[in-house]
Computed example of a mutant assay.
Amino acid sequence: MGKVRSAQSAGSIVRRVREEKGVSRAELSSETGIGTRTIYALEQGESRNFGLENYLKILAALGLDMSIDLKGSPAAIKQPDDLEAPLVPTFELADIWKLDGCGEK
């Protein structure tokens, strides 16, 4: 599992996995509804406003999962005893998201 800390590293992982699976950008575009030029921009780390929903579509199409490491985040704050539901932390996804199943070492 590798940590992703930039658009470039996320795009690099997407490109590497897509190529390893023998999936063309056109095939990935068809499966996700995301344009081939947009996928290319993502893979080059050039797509700044790509959106989490689109990342999740691409990851699902490639058989990847995303998890969020909450270690040291506001989620580590003890929850008051009178709350039944966990507190929802606030954090920057781009700084802490990880991809399961592959990644940079």
Rank of each mutant, 00 (worst) to 15 (best):
K3G: 02
V4D: 00
V4K: 09
V4A: 06
V4E: 09
R5A: 12
S6Q: 03
S6E: 06
A7M: 12
A7Y: 11
A7T: 08
Q8D: 04
S9Q: 10
A10K: 03
A10L: 07
A10E: 02
G11M: 09
G11D: 04
G11N: 11
S12L: 03
S12E: 12
I13M: 00
V14T: 02
V14S: 14
V14P: 07
R16Q: 05
V17Y: 04
V17M: 04
V17R: 03
V17P: 11
R18C: 04
E19W: 01
E20C: 11
K21G: 11
K21I: 14
G22E: 03
G22S: 11
G22N: 06
S24K: 05
S24P: 14
R25V: 13
A26N: 07
A26K: 15
A26I: 06
A26G: 01
L28I: 10
S29L: 08
S30N: 09
G33L: 08
T36F: 00
R37F: 08
R37E: 13
T38D: 13
T38K: 02
T38N: 11
T38V: 15
T38W: 14
Y40S: 13
A41S: 07
A41V: 01
L42V: 05
L42N: 06
Q44S: 00
Q44A: 07
N49V: 14
N49S: 10
F50C: 00
F50T: 11
L52Q: 10
L52K: 15
E53T: 11
E53W: 12
N54A: 05
L56R: 10
L56P: 01
K57V: 03
K57M: 03
I58S: 00
L59T: 03
A60N: 13
A60W: 09
A61N: 14
L62Q: 01
L62C: 05
L62Y: 07
G63C: 04
L64T: 10
L64S: 04
L64M: 10
D65W: 08
M66H: 05
M66D: 07
S67I: 14
I68P: 08
I68Y: 10
I68R: 10
D69L: 04
D69N: 05
L70Y: 02
L70M: 11
K71I: 01
S73C: 01
P74V: 07
A75C: 06
A76V: 06
Q79H: 06
P80M: 06
P80I: 09
P80N: 12
D82F: 07
L83H: 12
E84W: 04
A85N: 12
P86K: 07
L87K: 09
L87N: 09
V88N: 06
V88M: 04
P89H: 12
T90V: 05
T90P: 13
T90H: 14
F91L: 10
F91P: 01
L93D: 12
L93Q: 08
L93V: 09
K98N: 09
L99G: 00
L99T: 05
G101I: 08
G101L: 02
C102W: 05
C102I: 15
G103D: 06
E104C: 15
E104Y: 01
E104P: 13
K105R: 14
